[in-house]
Each structure stands twice: as C-alpha cells, then as structure tokens.
Amino acid sequence: MSVRDASHDWHRSRVWELAGEGGARWYVKVSPSVKFFTRETRAYRSVVPALGHSRAPHLLDSHADDLTLLLTAAPGAPAPGMGLTAVEWRAVHSQAGMLCAQLHEASELDPRDRAEAEASLAAAADGAEKYLGRAGNRLTGGEQQLVRDYAAQLRRIGPVPLGYIHGDNQPRNWLWSEAGLALVDFERTRPAARVQDLVILAVTEWLDHPDREQAFLQAYGRALTGAERHALRCLTALDAVNCSAWGPDNSHPEVTARGRRTLDRLMKEDRP
C-alpha cells in the first residue's frame, strides 16, 4: 500500500490518500477541530447520502479521540486543475447546482437545527467586528464602515429558505469525471440559510462567468428570492473582511486577493 499527502494548502489540513492493490483508494482525514469532526461525521451519516452513489465519499470509520475519518474515494479530480473548456465548466456548474439542491433539501430540519439555521445570518453579522479587528488597518475607514453597514442590513433580512449547506462550496471541492460531479470536504456542513452556500461562487466563478451562474441556478431548480439576493450581497462584504483577515495571517494570497477584489467592487458601486 502506498500513501500520498493530499492535504489542501493550509497548515491545518491533514489528508492522506491510501492506494492499495487493484486500484483501490481510500482517504484518511484528521479534522482540524472537534467542531469540524462533529459536523463532518454527522454530515456523512445524515446528509451526504441524499447525493446518491458516486456523488460523494462514504464514511467507513471514524475515531473521535484523534478526530480521524476513513473515507472512500469519490471518482474524479478537482475541477480547477483539469483544463476544462467553457462548455465543460457550464456542465460542471449545472451538476453542482443539482447536487446543492439535493444537499439543501436532504431532510427536514429538526427543531434544534431549524433554530440554528434561522440564526445563521445574524451569526454571520455578529462575526463582522471580530474580522474587522483582525484585519486592522488592511481596510480603510470607509471600507470598515461599508462592512458594518452590510452587517446591519443582514440582520434585517426577512425569511429565507433554510437547509443543510456544504459550507465550503467551491470548485476545489468538486471532483469531475466521466461519471459526473462529486462533492467532497463536508467539515463545514451545517444547518443554515441556503444562500450562504453561494457566497464564494458569487465573488469568484460567477463574477467573471455569469453563464456559469445561470447554469447552476437552472439546475438548482429556482431563482433566488429577493431576500436571498440581498443577503448574498451582504454576505459577500462579510466574506471580504474575513478574507482580508484570514488570507494575510495564513500566507494565502489567493484568499487575500478575493477579499480585496470584493471590497474594491463594493466601494465602487456603493461609494462612487
């Protein structure tokens, strides 16, 4: 048996691929925290099965004492590294929309999960000051006020559709193959406002490729409500300050650039 480090480019990511005879593969993952371990094991047992066979890994075993999961290997490779054509990218986003709809509607929320989901937008707004503090002088005074304004608006958003979200829904966690798309990495899966699963896509993929957004939402099965559209804009501002804090602190220029691009765009549109 051979072992390959398959971790993300983040110091707390610890994932190894195990390859056996006959092409058999498995993954061993050590969760970065008890919270992530609890979320991910619960997701694999209660939510992920709704995606269907070959659309996600399966949990074979887990050990809470060392936060370890043993997973099957889903088919495919991360979409960003495959040199896909524009047509293929639209197909990827279409299948991502379909799978997200299945995940978001995986099961009825029990009372405890519903309460968490209903509070998710306010919880996101509550994090604004923490990230502003961590970002410090990386943001101008005007940018800091912009983030606070959007956090305040987010608290006033009306009812939005709720469900179980992936939590890190972006192409690096999408595996593409002839069999179609599979989702991986469910450590952030939780009950929340469904629109929270679209934030990273809105400020990266869809900003430059609106045809991908159209393909996603068509397969998702519905257009976003007005409240969701408003919430999404607010959430992109909060994502920007989060990126401005987390990116430099973790030497991650791609995340840092994502935050800066969003802040520049929102300032241009809101404070011309």
Rank of each mutant, 00 (worst) to 15 (best):
A215H: 06
H63G: 08
R12I: 05
L51Y: 00
R4T: 08
A245N: 06
V47L: 07
V195I: 10
A119R: 13
V28M: 06
T41V: 15
T204K: 11
R45M: 08
M98W: 00
G23F: 01
T72M: 02
W26G: 09
Q102F: 01
L60M: 05
R156N: 10
L238D: 12
K35A: 10
L263V: 09
H8N: 10
A231G: 13
L207E: 13
L103E: 05
K130P: 08
G127S: 10
R172P: 06
S54M: 01
E116C: 03
S177Q: 15
R45C: 06
A77W: 00
P78Q: 08
D110E: 09
A86S: 12
A152M: 02
A24D: 14
R258M: 12
R45W: 01
R265S: 04
M267D: 03
L162I: 05
E228Q: 05
W16A: 11
L266R: 05
D5A: 07
R42K: 14
F186W: 07
P80M: 08
V147C: 03
H53R: 04
G158V: 02
A56K: 02
M98D: 13
A179F: 01
L51C: 00
V160S: 03
A151S: 06
S2A: 12
T236A: 04
L175A: 11
C100H: 11
L238P: 05
A86C: 08
A122P: 10
D149T: 11
G180L: 13
F216A: 15
D264E: 12
W16T: 04
A106G: 10
P80N: 04
R260G: 03
A24Q: 09
G76H: 09
P49K: 12
C234E: 03
R155M: 04
G247M: 02
F37H: 12
M98N: 11
Y131K: 12
A193N: 11
T236Q: 07
A257T: 06
G76I: 04
D185F: 02
G81R: 06
H230M: 15
A24M: 06
G167Y: 00
S177A: 15
E129V: 03
A215P: 12
T189I: 14
